[in-house]
Simulated assay, not measured.
Amino acid sequence: MALSDADVQKQIKHMMAFIEQEANEKAEEIDAKAEEEFNIEKGRLVQTQRLKIMEYYEKKEKQIEQQKKIRMSNLMNQARLKVLKARDDMISEMLSEARQRLGNIAKDPARYSALLDGLILQGLYQLLESKVTIRCRKQDFQMIQASIQRNVPIYKMAVKINMEARIDQDNVLSPDISGGVEIFNGNGKIKVANTLESRLDLMAQQMMPAIRMSLFGANPNRKFLD
């Protein structure tokens, strides 16, 4: 039975509608698949970038923390240096005041004479020479000569050696020092410095640990005291 043109057109329309429906369904399927893949890829990219951002800021945070530690360490070192400088300045002022007070010793003849006896006799024992030369301030010549006359016999009796001591009147010590003597052996190559300033410096060096402990207390970082 032959189909009429109307039937043919109807079937064609039906087939076209079926094809269009299949095409729409396929397009929707593709869209859904693309959307799913897009969301998966977007999630992966977001997660990757989130991790990168987290790693970046963790690294930055560690850098900032390290810089903070370095800064704090530098500030603490600067503060420690300032404290040490303040302590050194205090000790320097104390020693400077002590040097100024040395001048008062020579103003007391009895005290200064007894001190000279000790300084000269100590120098003689240190040198153990048969001839020595003593340098002093010009204003101390008389007092030094008297001390020599008193102490040479004591030295001879103690060491059983004859000894001659003389004052070097050509090379005198500066009048600016507080007093004391310098004693040389016979050829002038060995010197015992027993001026008041040199004795103060020696005592300050020996007593510095005790001075620091007295002024600032014990150092917790110091393991040995000698």
Score class of each variant (00 low, 15 high):
107 K>I: 06
109 P>V: 03
109 P>E: 06
111 R>V: 06
113 S>K: 02
114 A>M: 10
114 A>Q: 12
116 L>A: 12
117 D>C: 10
118 G>S: 15
120 I>A: 03
122 Q>T: 12
123 G>Q: 00
123 G>I: 00
124 L>W: 00
125 Y>F: 13
129 E>T: 03
130 S>I: 05
135 R>G: 02
138 K>M: 07
138 K>D: 09
141 F>Y: 15
141 F>Q: 13
141 F>R: 13
141 F>W: 11
141 F>P: 05
142 Q>T: 11
143 M>Y: 08
143 M>V: 12
144 I>G: 03
145 Q>I: 08
148 I>N: 02
150 R>D: 12
152 V>P: 02
152 V>I: 13
154 I>Y: 12
155 Y>G: 07
157 M>S: 15
158 A>S: 15
158 A>Q: 14
159 V>G: 14
161 I>T: 13
162 N>E: 13
163 M>A: 14
164 E>Y: 12
164 E>H: 15
165 A>D: 01
165 A>V: 02
165 A>T: 03
166 R>K: 14
166 R>E: 09
170 D>I: 10
170 D>V: 11
172 V>T: 13
176 D>A: 15
176 D>W: 08
177 I>S: 10
177 I>Q: 07
177 I>N: 08
178 S>P: 05
178 S>V: 04
179 G>P: 00
182 E>K: 09
182 E>D: 13
186 G>S: 14
189 K>Q: 12
189 K>C: 08
193 A>Q: 08
194 N>M: 04
195 T>Q: 02
196 L>W: 02
196 L>A: 05
199 R>K: 11
199 R>W: 05
207 M>G: 13
208 M>I: 07
210 A>M: 10
210 A>E: 07
211 I>S: 03
212 R>S: 06
213 M>I: 10
213 M>L: 09
214 S>M: 09
214 S>A: 12
216 F>T: 04
216 F>D: 02
217 G>H: 00
217 G>A: 03
219 N>P: 01
219 N>A: 04
221 N>F: 06
223 K>H: 13
